[in-house]
Design a protein around this nucleic acid. Structure first.
Lengths: 147, 147
DNA sequence: CTTTTTGCAAAGCGTTTGCATTGAA
DNA sequence: TTCAATGCAAACGCTTTGCAAAAAG
């Protein structure tokens, strides 16, 4: 079994596309290039701006759809967040969340071990932590049943 | 010093409003009532629907603005989330996030202790955890400087 | 009477959709 | 030649803004 030692990033990208029957278009190559070089967790429009320098005709839409496609085939991740409308919580106590990635439900839970988590020393120096919380994401019981 | 033992929720609400020079309007009372009774971390439009039964003329806008006001005076919390556009992350390894609540920046960090967090027994039974992550929110160094 | 608050309407931002055209395989 | 990908435009969902009218203190 051949190892992937000397695969370049672009070769791995092409391989992933082939695995998923995605065509290798110049746009996809450019978007991939922009995103793997990015820092700071770019949003689609930042990638759009970068790619547009090489492909002035590219549409925002293609960039956005391509990024979503890439996340589906495991080339990048979407930063998990509770999307949709802002939610309010009358529970003022510190608590943690279960997040069902299927139905979007957020379930509170309390856990003293999690409350006691220590902030790493090197982070204390560069960031003032006001709140600590743990998010466990996955599939809730109800969504399991209906699958 | 008198303790708040027998304050009802509505009295505490009125007190908080007075502390912050907010007028006690029937709309605010109704919105407060709906939100403290809520479960499931409602979004503004769910509260809107509930309050509209009593106040058919209320606008979505009032509900939304009132909820934001309430979060500012500590009556409820906004479920912290990375708002704005969806962000992409080319870093596929498990990692955790610092989230600056002032500028919105997301900074990755790695921490083996956090990776090793155990999922509580009672949660394992009702939820399939696919991903664990810790979010430390607060103020980043740059935002500290400019304050 | 003064100052907030409300309701409304429009604008804004990001996302999603449908469709005709283009281009990779 | 075929089918997927692209570019465009419109629609959509949620949030924010400005302003005149109404209401609280």
């Amino acid at each position: 079994m051949q190892k992937d030692f000397n695969k370049t990033q672009i070769d791995m990208f092409i391989e992933k596309c082939k695995q998923h029957n995605l065509k290798i278009t110049p746009q996809r190559i450019a978007i991939h290039g922009a995103v793997v070089q990015s820092r700071n967790h770019p949003a689609a429009d930042e990638i759009f701006k970068i790619v547009k320098e090489k492909f002035p005709n590219i549409s925002f839409d293609t960039v956005n759809r391509t990024l979503l496609t890439f996340s589906q085939i495991g080339i990048l991740k979407i930063i998990e967040s509770f999307r949709g409308a802002r939610r309010f919580d009358p529970n003022l106590e510190n608590h943690h969340h279960l997040h069902c990635i299927n139905c979007g439900k957020i379930i509170d839970f309390n856990n003293e071990n999690y409350d006691r988590l220590e902030v790493p020393r090197n982070i204390q120096q560069k960031f003032t932590v006001l709140n600590k919380r743990v998010i466990l994401s996955g599939i809730c019981k109800e969504c399991h049943k209906t699958k």
